[in-house]
Design a protein around this nucleic acid. Structure first.
Lengths: 166, 166
DNA sequence: TATTGTTATACTCTATAACTATA
DNA sequence: TATAGTTATAGAGTATAACAATA
């Protein structure tokens, strides 16, 4: 009952990551769903940015990004103001309250993973993280229009390729 | 802009797996959403089983499993019949049509991954698969009530948490 | 006319709780 | 009374398309 290709096996394990993500989500603060949590994480990592860039980093449509950001703004975690240089652009930044929420999130997430992966060698944790980052890069860098190109299937907007390396 | 704990980094990469899963989902047959696809995969791997076991393998509530199975049954991919030994139990099995759909799914999934991960060393693909399987095992084996506990909802009964470390 | 965001609508997936049927 | 499974309801996530505002 075991004759699978390596890719089929990988696909199966990737699917099972959902369990882990749900568990991590369960331990988040009550009023902070996973997606807004990602917004805070990325703003904390990369600093001030516009909607377009955040949507790109989250690898989801900007319409969805907009809703998650609105949620965070309503709760005072994110400051959203127009770019003085271009009235169309909105600049996003963590507030003090947002930084506190982010710290609490990180604390809980690390606690959960430490609890569950306590017996893992540090090098395995690091290796898994590394390989997953590589996976993300392979998808972002593809440039074949798999994910991005709305219609044109343009080759490779260079800024996006750079963003995928973060 | 990089002073994170290993667990925070891992959590971030786990979150980004969503991108990969969406991409794989996009390339599935039109009438076969990801969750029913998982049903077919597991029945293909493990053979005939009951609802309870399938829900356990999928790591989701049986109510949700029931709906995904119903979807597959409606389309003739799965045969669902009462267990002659226990009228409460329902036995699930792939039909011929289900096996065809499964084969087509695997073909597409492998194709997508081969396209995107074509330049990965085989050993990296294998190692990632292995580590993800380990992650899944760490969550399933925990036994601390993180996932299962029907109502306790208590974050961390300290005694059991200690026992789980053994 | 093109770009940046936002809003409206629809679909998928999940959990909780109430319910049916069998043991 | 306990167990196996189904159905109803609600919440979170995503994509597409239509829309408003600015360049």
């Amino acid at each position: 009952m075991t004759a699978h290709t390596p890719y089929e096996d990988l696909a199966r394990e990737l699917g099972s990551v959902g369990t882990v993500r749900r568990e991590l989500a369960r331990n988040l603060p009550h009023d902070c769903p996973p997606a807004p949590a990602v917004v805070l994480t990325l703003l904390g990592r990369h600093g001030e940015m516009r909607m377009t860039r955040l949507a790109d980093l989250m690898a989801i449509d900007m319409s969805v990004t907009s809703r998650h950001v609105a949620y965070a703004v309503e709760r005072g975690w994110v400051d959203r103001r127009p770019d003085p240089l271009d009235g169309r652009v909105r600049l996003l930044r963590l507030t003090g309250s947002g930084q506190e929420m982010l710290a609490e999130m990180h604390r809980r997430t690390s606690e959960t993973l430490a609890h569950l992966l306590g017996d893992w060698p540090q090098e395995d944790v690091a290796r898994l993280t590394e390989l997953l980052a590589g996976l993300r890069a392979s998808f972002g860098d593809c440039g074949c229009g798999c994910r991005t190109a709305p219609r044109g299937a343009r080759p490779l907007p260079p800024d996006r390729a750079a963003a995928a390396q973060d």
